[in-house]
Design a protein around this nucleic acid. Structure first.
Lengths: 216, 216, 216, 216
DNA sequence: TATGAATGAGAGTTCATTCAT
DNA sequence: TATGAATGAACTCTCATTCAT
């Protein structure tokens, strides 16, 4: 078992350190209000050094977005193809997984950042749209279609229903980064997830049939 | 014979024209990337004129937000108190009304703007939180609680369920202003609403009882 | 005895009202920090009206200076030619008169204004130099020369001595408008004058002759 | 073969160069009429460089004043405590020293600047009042009191007499920076000093005693 | 004569980017 | 590779001046 190396060439860790500092700052302040000095300071390097690794502020933002998303995407894809159980269980699994990430990491700031800057960085918005959203859409509509086909799900409109499934996640992200400071009671993501799963499965309307049912 | 006058006095219509131009530009570009010159140009006035009506860029943003919201708020409040029919019908009514506004007016850019700039303008975020979100929350949780009490709704968790109801609206707003340009098929808000109402009412899971129903 | 007229055509009093407001503001704030809006407001007219009477800010300053000085100058000239008594008495009279004006009116702000703006308004400085300073110089050096000739004064260097006589007046003006707010005890102009006259007459050094005297 | 570099690093000399350029410009134009571009141009740097060293125009002015005065103050204090000879000689020494500085260096522009801007920068005026004027007052009144006590000086009013002693210096400063350009014969500071010392010592009035006396 | 809305040049300041070291 | 002093364009905001009313 190798012990930790006694030293590392700085440059190996550098790009990642810079991206981390940039992510943090962009998420905290927004793109325009972030200045390169601050990123450099947080990364513990000089401003000039940033430009050795990234050609400019805009490119730095893109790099931040790209690398923040790509890891998560690959992972999700893998898990999807290796599932077992009902489609409802798979859906629950994804929603739970996602909710947990929102509540724990600050990568959740990225989507908000993209929304905010989509007007000024259409390429980033498009990149996000194609790489993240379209994949999520495919993933979920596939599940829906199969679930409907096998009678597990009601015959909803998959091309629009996937947005209803995703919407609470998006709201959660935004809430965490926008209104949480103003809520004295905070937000309980476990309860949030429970409520979402319950409503997603059974809807709001009390059915005439006496028997209640459980999670999808 | 004098040529066209260099400017013309428009004093009555001016403030609203300026707000319109500002709303448009802020929504399109975001706060930081918007410059006063551009707003002035769109409003057909000189830069200095803006400062005759609003003391600065930040105040202009606040004025835009304030006046965009206040009108809508008053209206919603009025309609709420004058409803008849089941709670499900009332909910449907609100969601429909809201969806129609998203799809037709460009006031829907305001919420996105607020989300984007909440970090830099906490006061605006707080204003929005208190004036808009808290009211919506009260409105919806009241409906939910009453609907549950009278057996119309399943016993969901109202303090969180209201967010599930609102989430698709928020997503719709963001979608319109962020990803619509990238979608070749556009977005059909009628279908969007139908899907939302259906899922909200009955959920995703097929009930064991053979008979399906349609209205929430 | 005529009673006050029931009305006056506004325009008769206007120019003087404007000059008064301008003097007050220029003295208080300095030329650059004074804006036309403020002058107009103090004069109770609109900004545009200022331009009906004076072609611009610089011209307004010149008009203020000119009219503030001309009156005083004429007066001084008259009194000088109609004096009687020793030259020492004449000198005392002028110094007293001037000191009284410094202490009572706020015209004393004009010299400070001129000093401050001499770099930006050489014409005003030159005007002041020729109309005020050179006259004062002539007046005083004449008195000195005659006083020396008749044995009343010691044989001082009149071309420079006149400045020593004037210096305390200048200092008094500046003091009043610059440092007075910082002095808890204020400034007693009577004592100031007494001290000046005493020192001007007899100097600082105790003479070997036992008898002291008091008037110059 | 590279052409001349766009800029050169001068970091050590820079701050002083900037202060020099600023002093020159402020004295020439006054605070408000001085713009940062001009200072930068005179210092041979770009406008942005100024802001690397001083946070703004106002702070730059304060820095100019502070550093111009502090050196001179310390020096004067030192000399005062190490004097020998009569009090009259000490007074003469100071007046001579001061006059020489007025005539040779352009630091003499600082007092004029302070007078001119005292309305807009009360802090600077107060700083000057406390650090410069109050010290000078103490210095001179102490000398006067001691001189009077030992019979060297006539019993003048020290709290006001010190202003009479200082007044010609102030006038000299103002003269140099305000009216000198208009005087064809210029100003001979040696003669100015001689005249001041002579009048300060013996006053204007010819004493009845036949014997003349010498310098204080 | 009087107004005050409108103008637009110019101010101080910021900051992404460059480059001599 | 790393630095950070230097740059200069772009920004917000001010205000003397103009002119339709």
């Amino acid at each position: 078992m190798p012990s930790a190396p006694r030293w590392r060439r700085r440059s190996d860790a550098r790009p990642q350190e810079l991206l981390d500092a940039a992510l943090e700052t962009f998420v905290e302040r927004g793109y325009a209000a972030t200045n390169m000095d601050e990123i450099a300071r947080r990364a513990g390097v000089s401003k000039g050094t940033l430009y050795l690794y990234y050609p400019g502020k805009a490119e730095l933002l893109k790099a931040v977005v790209r690398q923040s998303l790509l890891g998560n995407l690959a992972e999700a894809q893998t898990q999807a193809s290796a599932h077992s159980g009902t489609f409802g269980e798979l859906l629950n699994y994804f929603l739970g997984e996602f909710t947990r990430r929102i509540s724990r990491t600050n990568i959740s700031g990225i989507p908000k950042l993209i929304l905010a800057e989509s007007g000024n960085f259409p390429e980033i918005a498009q990149f996000y749209f194609e790489e993240v959203i379209q994949r999520a859409r495919t993933l979920i509509t596939d599940i829906l279609r199969q679930g409907i086909a096998c009678g597990e799900f009601r015959p909803v409109d998959p091309d629009y229903a996937w947005r209803m499934i995703v919407a609470p996640l998006v709201l959660g992200v935004l809430w965490k980064h926008t209104f949480l400071p103003f809520e004295p009671d905070g937000l309980d993501f476990d309860r949030y997830l429970d409520c979402q799963l319950d409503m997603l499965a059974h809807g709001l309307v009390a059915s005439e049939t006496p028997a209640g049912r459980n999670t999808p």
